[in-house]
Design a protein around this nucleic acid. Sequence first.
DNA 1: TGATGTGAAGCGGTTCACAGCC
DNA 2: GGCTGTGAACCGCTTCACATCA
Lengths: 229, 229
Amino acid sequence: MKSDKISESTTNRLSIYLRCLKAVAASGATTVSSKALADDFHLNSAQMRKDLAYFGEFGVRGLGYSVDTLCDHLTKILGLDKEHRVAIMGAGRLGTALADYYGFRRANFTVTALFDNDREKIGTRIGEVKVLDAKNFAATVKRDNIELAVIAVPASCAQMVFEDIVAAGIKAVLNFAPAALRKSSSDVKLKTVDLTTSLESLSFFLAQPAKQNSTNRKRKTKGGRNTAK
Amino acid sequence: MKSDKISESTTNRLSIYLRCLKAVAASGATTVSSKALADDFHLNSAQMRKDLAYFGEFGVRGLGYSVDTLCDHLTKILGLDKEHRVAIMGAGRLGTALADYYGFRRANFTVTALFDNDREKIGTRIGEVKVLDAKNFAATVKRDNIELAVIAVPASCAQMVFEDIVAAGIKAVLNFAPAALRKSSSDVKLKTVDLTTSLESLSFFLAQPAKQNSTNRKRKTKGGRNTAK
DNA sequence: TGATGTGAAGCGGTTCACAGCC
DNA sequence: GGCTGTGAACCGCTTCACATCA
């Protein structure tokens, strides 16, 4: 009921619950129990109930959850009932790939513009989206009501770009640059997706002696590890 | 000393330490203390010492760490002293963007090939990298000694592709598809980067009443939150 | 003196197990 | 009977604080 102090692991999982529920809805079921969902998508049923309990009592004891109403609740909780406008900083490979990433549209995000300072790129189009001069960023944010920015520039200029973003009044930032950005005001939410770190973490795993044998592990409802982290 | 039971948070941070150390090395310093590093890159000094302690005693009391030797140690620990060969599954926007992602090369990863089953794409080139027929995947893995696979296909076929990857004997997988993949054998390391979830988590933040005021927080050595999660 | 390495305390998230309600 | 909602136990990572050593 009190949506205070929700951990990031919880919000990540909410997103996953919604995805799973949509799959269930597509299969035609109208009601689902936490256990059934957990089994089908290898989640943890107790954890799911606890996550949902932060926001209300959506279930019916002895029965489970109504698929549709829970979908609606989660959509609203995650703020996906309203459109969010997005700017992408950097029109390189990654920026342009993101510009027509289907997931944006699916989640009610609209990429309004790409920003770059390369004269060659400014004025071109990626699908429907124009590449604009980074100089006009702040003005465009105001005019187009942009709420979210994606950093897809090289690490060397990421900090500078981040400060411009904050200065323009944007409160949510998704960062792809492999750099630890310093945030001055803490009412800005910064989420970093660090491919280098992910990659090197996998490399670490490959470098290990690979001593684990896959057969002698607990194998109950749990199955895989939780996906959200 | 015992490199057993290293948590993922720790390996992620090791990667970040290495990055920071390289920046320090570039600045010309030859020695650095955990506190100095922590201050400059807003890390936690105690945590860094503890992370390193899993692997040995690299520091000198009263002095700190030798930048070069610690770099070498971390490079070896993360397995970055050996080249790793990578296959990317899916030659869509994301796959092709990743194919010439600079971070791969920097971290001693070599993208050997892209795989797709679209006749239109097979045979084309993305920079230096050829797009091959997914049918030849297993054979190519053997021939080219591919150790790591990246999933950049739509969610609907991700599970199938993942199973092919595991069947081909690959032990480390980076998944970009918004899908919870089931792994049968647990000696495969699967790391998922879920853009949809990241995005929706930011949306959740935007949907909150924004009650926090940024001024009344502890502000000591800690500064920002830890970057690795 | 200064900075490492580390036991111990602290804390937050996960899992358990059961009371409560349909 | 079945399944939710939730206090309590549990667990692992983080932080503290200090003994230890150059």
